[in-house]
Write a protein that binds this DNA or RNA. Structure first.
Lengths: 78, 78
DNA sequence: GGAAATTTGTTCGTATGTATA
DNA sequence: TTATACATACGAACAAATTTC
């Protein structure tokens, strides 16, 4: 699906792609993002790398994760 | 199965311990913190866990890391 | 100058626990 | 209960930047 290669580490590239998709409305507020396992297969990376990508989005305050539920797009305020 | 178990995950415990040591002056501003390898042996954890601990301190803006150099106590501003 | 050692950076794999559906 | 999904933690390997000898 996606061809990922470049100077940036994969987890950052993935984070940027998903962040852009949140921005452009592909993933709407409160909607569930792909599971870590889905990210693994979609971008052909390990679970570790998928988690690193989501960790960045969490740090950016773009998403929240909930054990057993999934990762969700956070609502934008201000 | 692991030892040294508590209410908090190990990486957070380690982060809290080191953060406290930064607070009390054990580790002074601009000084180098123990390398990841040292954290591994000192707390008997894997490198991944050691890195998770430092990741927390980075997120808290308490330390900075530099490839090939090490992890340093950040200088307090404000 | 250069090789070796040190240290962080990235990435993979595996196992087990906990929470939710 | 079973399946799904995230949380924690172990290990391994190589790359890249820096330091040391």
């Amino acid at each position: 699906m996606h061809e990922l290669e470049g100077p940036e580490p994969m987890y950052r590239q993935i984070a940027d792609i998903i962040a852009a998709q949140i921005e452009d409305g592909t993933y709407r507020p409160n909607s569930r993002l792909p599971s870590e396992a889905e990210v693994c297969t979609r971008f052909d990376v390990s679970r570790r790398t998928a988690r690193e990508a989501y960790a960045i989005l969490i740090e950016r305050d773009l998403v929240v994760t909930s054990q057993g539920k999934g990762t969700y797009v956070k609502r934008r305020e201000a």
